[in-house]
Design a protein around this nucleic acid. Structure first.
Lengths: 220, 220
DNA sequence: CCTAGTATATACATGCATGTATGTATCTTG
DNA sequence: CAAGATACATACATGCATGTATATACTAGG
C-alpha cells in the first residue's frame, strides 16, 4: 500500500526514483506477511522467547527476508504496535459509523468488550506490549504514547455516548475505557489458564455486570 | 526448615545420616535468599529474560550456589510457585482468623483486593505464572493445579461469607474469587503502563464498584 | 536477452546464557 | 585438630539466537 508514508520503522526506501512499480508491491506483501507472522509468534511465545527465524519461517521466508525489511526484533515489535493501534482505532470508528443512535452505540460498545474477551491473540499481544513498556524504561514513553492514543479514542466515544444519554461516568472516560479493555483481557487470560475456573458464560456475565456498573453509577 | 519434606524441587538431600545439623540451616538460608532473589528477578525481567546469574548475584552468590540448590530456571520457578501459593493461602487464613463477624469479613475481603492492586511484584509474578501456563502445554496442568488450590481457597471463604449473610453470588464462588484477583492485577498493570490513564483513586473506585457489583447482585 | 537493481537465501562470525567439572573454603565429627 | 563431607566459586564447554557478509534468484528497462 503506502511505501514510504507514516511508517516509523528504521528501514527506509531511498525514495524510489519515479517507479511505483511492481517490486514494491512484492516488498509490501512480504512486509505484511512478516508482520502477521510476528503477531502470531509474539502472541504464541511472548516477546523474549520469540525467535526471528520462527517469524520468518511462519511467513514462508528465512531470516534473510526479515533483515531486508526490519532492523531487529524490537523494530518489528514497534511496527506491529503501530499497525495494531491503527487497526483498533479503525474498529472503533467503524462501530461509530454503523450505529447512529446513542442507545445502539452503547449496546454495541457493550458487545464490543464482550468480543474482545474472545480474541486470544489480541489479549496476549496486548499484554506483551504492556509488559514490554513496564520492563523497558527506554521504550516506555514511546509505547505509552501509542496506547494513550488508543485510550483517548476509546474514551472519547464513551464520553460522547454518555453525554448523548445525559449520563455521567464515575471516573474519567479514558480511565473507564482502559479499565473495560483491561478487564476483558484479564478475564480471557484466566479462562486460558483454567477454563473450568471461569466459563464463557461467567465471563459474559461478569463483563456485563462491570460494564453496567461503570456506565450506570452516577458521579459521586 | 524442612530438609526433605513436601518439596517438589528436583534437588534432594541424600537423607543426611543422622545430623539435623547447622549446615542445613545454612543451606536453607541460601535457598530462601535465592527464592527471594528469583521472585524479584522474575517480576522485574520476566521469566524468559531473567538470567540465572542475576538471580544468584541478587542473592549475593554466584551460579555455583544456584546449581547447588536448583536444577534449572524452571525448577526454581516452580519452587517459587509452591511457596507463593502457600503464602497467599496463609494470608487468606490469617484474614479469616482476624475477623469473626461475616460483615467484617466481607469488608476485610474488599480491602484485601484493594491491597492486591498495590503490590507490583505480586501482580507481575502472578502474570508470569499465568503466561507460563498458557505457553507451556507440558507444564500447564501442574501450574493449573496449584492455582486451582488457591482459587478454591479464596472461593471458599467468599462462599462462606456470602452464606452467613444470606446472600448468593451470581456465579460460582471460585469464578468470583478468580475474577476479583485478576481484576485487581489488571488495574495495577494499566497503572504501571500509564499512571495518568488510571489513577490510584480511580482504581480504588473501580475495584469497589466491581466488588459490590459481584457481591450485591442476586443470582439471576 | 542483457544489464542493472532489488529481493531473498545461504554461510559465517559473534556473543551470551546455560550447564558441568573441578577447585577451594567452611563445617562436622571422632 | 585431622579427615571427610558439604557449600559455594571459578573455569571451561556447548548450544543457540542474532547479526552480517556474500551469493543466487527475480524484476525492470533498454
Amino acid at each position: 500500500m503506502n511505501t514510504s508514508s507514516i511508517v516509523t520503522s528504521g528501514r527506509r526506501k531511498k525514495a524510489a526514483p519515479t517507479s511505483p512499480s511492481r517490486q514494491q508491491a512484492r516488498t509490501a506483501a512480504t512486509r505484511r506477511k512478516l508482520l502477521l507472522a510476528a503477531e502470531q509468534t509474539f502472541a504464541h511465545d511472548g516477546y523474549e522467547a520469540a525467535r526471528l527465524e520462527d517469524i520468518a519461517a511462519r511467513a514462508g521466508y528465512t531470516r534473510g527476508a526479515f533483515y531486508a525489511n526490519f532492523d531487529s526484533k524490537e523494530d518489528i515489535f514497534f511496527a506491529l504496535l503501530e499497525q495494531w493501534v491503527a487497526q483498533r482505532i479503525s474498529e472503533v470508528n467503524e462501530l461509530l459509523r454503523r450505529h447512529e443512535n446513542p442507545q445502539q452505540r452503547l449496546r454495541a460498545l457493550r458487545e464490543h468488550y464482550a468480543q474482545i474477551a474472545k480474541d486470544r491473540r489480541l489479549a496476549l499481544l496486548s499484554l506483551e506490549f504492556k509488559l514490554f513498556a513496564v520492563r523497558h524504561p527506554e521504550a516506555h514513553a514511546r509505547l505509552r504514547a501509542r496506547q494513550r492514543g488508543l485510550r483517548s479514542c476509546g474514551g472519547d466515544i464513551l464520553r460522547r455516548v454518555m453525554k448523548s444519554l445525559g449520563r455521567s461516568l464515575p471516573i474519567s472516560s479514558a480511565a473507564a475505557a482502559t479499565a473495560l479493555g483491561a478487564f476483558s483481557h484479564a478475564m480471557l487470560l484466566e479462562h486460558l489458564v483454567d477454563s473450568s475456573s471461569l466459563s464463557d458464560a461467567e465471563i459474559r456475565h461478569l463483563l456485563g455486570l462491570f460494564f453496567d456498573a461503570v456506565v450506570a453509577s452516577q458521579k459521586q
